[in-house]
Design a protein around this nucleic acid. Sequence first.
DNA 1: AAAGCGCCCTGAAGGC
DNA 2: TGCCTTCAGGGCGCTT
Length: 270
Amino acid sequence: MPELPEVETTRRGIAPHVKGRRIESLVIRQRQLRWPIPGSLKRYLTGTQINDVGRRAKYLLLHCDNGSALLHLGMSGSLRVVPSAQPVMTHDHVDFQLSDGRSLRFNDPRRFGALLWAGRDPHQHPLLASLGPEPLSREFTGQHLHRRSRERRCAVKSFIMDAHQVVGVGNIYASEALYHAGIHPRRPAGRISAKRYELLAQCIREVLRDAIAAGGTTLRDFTADGIPGYFSQSLAAYGREGLPCLACDTPLRCEVIGQRASFFCPRCQR
DNA sequence: AAAGCGCCCTGAAGGC
DNA sequence: TGCCTTCAGGGCGCTT
């Protein structure tokens, strides 16, 4: 379940290995992802050079000579650089065969991921054009959240998970940030003060920054339930239903909000 | 416009 | 033990 920190860690991990390499061929074994991989993608990518690897929200961008490919890891996707001769595993859907005998290999058991062509101005692609600010950018502030949430009655947890408000706040981080900010996840987004949004924005930045920092060294350590090992070190709320709140010992609760499991302290979070 | 929900898919977990 | 059922989960897009 790649959240933004894992996508960023993936970007940093693959960039040095693919930057400046030419794509000699593209091998597609399974086209049916979230959207079918377009038939034209092979034509665009074959023979082009990867100049840089970018990221917008949870989308990775392979910036090539003639435009950019857009890649989403979905819930279960992963990218690895492997020797091209390495035997193919189940769900290895795409190989970008590079000029140095290695391949960028995309594996995605659940096929919620995507691989599309975004052209020369990728940020104008429909999937990217209307996204909110990056949580670690200057534009993301408490004031931004406060202004955008006026008159909004949806739960604040759903609000901060809406990519049109701010990108990259997945289910785990939404619970964590709200816990640290002391805000009840069901509170209507429009009924939170500017001051509390300032604290919430700070908590969102902190949980994401910490996770990215941890992700660089311990990403390989995945637990059986798919939650990366580095989360288990520092999760204060997520997955801790019934366990004592770290601040007040009240048992944490789990409720479904917007069809997503949500963990919170009924006493600390108002 | 905002909010709610269905859907895509597989693997894991639970029930019998 | 093994089969069958249920469900989670990101995020788009349709419906209300």
